[in-house]
Amino acid sequence: MNDTPAISVEHLSLRYGGVTALDDVTLNVERGSVLAVVGRNGAGKSSLLQCMLGLTVPQSGHSQLLGCPSLDLTDDVKARLGYVSQSPELFEWLRVGEQISLIGGLYPNWSEELARALCVRFSIAEDMKVRTLSLGEKQRLAIVIALAHQPDLLVFDEPVASLDPVGRRDFLRALFEHEARDGEPVTVVISSHLLEDLERIATHVLFLEKGRVQLIGGRDELAERVQLAVTAHAIAPQAGLLKSRQLAADEWQHVVDTRALADGALPPDTALRALSLGDLFEALNT
């Protein structure tokens, strides 16, 4: 098996005028992992995914997909890549079947049976004009097209934002069942605000805040490592203290990285509480 990471991002920075979308982001996504990218609106999630894919050119830094520079993807790498953007980008003048067939014809690994099966699962009528589909239906169609060539690298930018609960369930099932044609481990990068969904599928989590990496790691590792502490006094800023917030006059809440926090930084009798992904997100962002 190839040891190079599925995605490698180094010192990526992106600015739009006076707004910093990404600030020196560096990360590797190992093959076979499912990376959940979370952050508040404007944190830089979409910008990061677009830079990863070479759709947006960063001011500095570079990224690689499956060992290939993102800004110069080869057809081989493109054939192994599936992408669903936040707002589905489809050719509105075609019918669903034509759209599937047109895009499918470009991929060497395209599976016509899988495409049809996914259309049935996602309740998409092939004879409808794309422009007549609702936003959710377009999103489902984009998912079908992203999955039907059985890629081993999937990038989803808020794929379920427009889907109803049934659509979300179908999406997650399709993702669980997804296998790459060539037997390669499937790597998934997914950004979403639906943390309970991410909790079910993610092996790794990346928290972004104002374009910077706030926290990254394996989900189990983070659950074990990053915990919530409540103290009666403030704690001085230091390594391992990720966030502090005053709840009341004599009540402070801290998100701490227990491995990085110095011994004695917390009062001796402080109780530490493990956090779910949702709780951690809330604690880091409020």
Binding site: L53, L81, Y83, E89
Partner: peptide
């Protein structure tokens, strides 16, 4: 503009 087109091979 169409990422799906841009990211497809050929």
């Amino acid at each position: 503009r169409y990422s799906q087109w841009k990211l497809a091979p050929s």
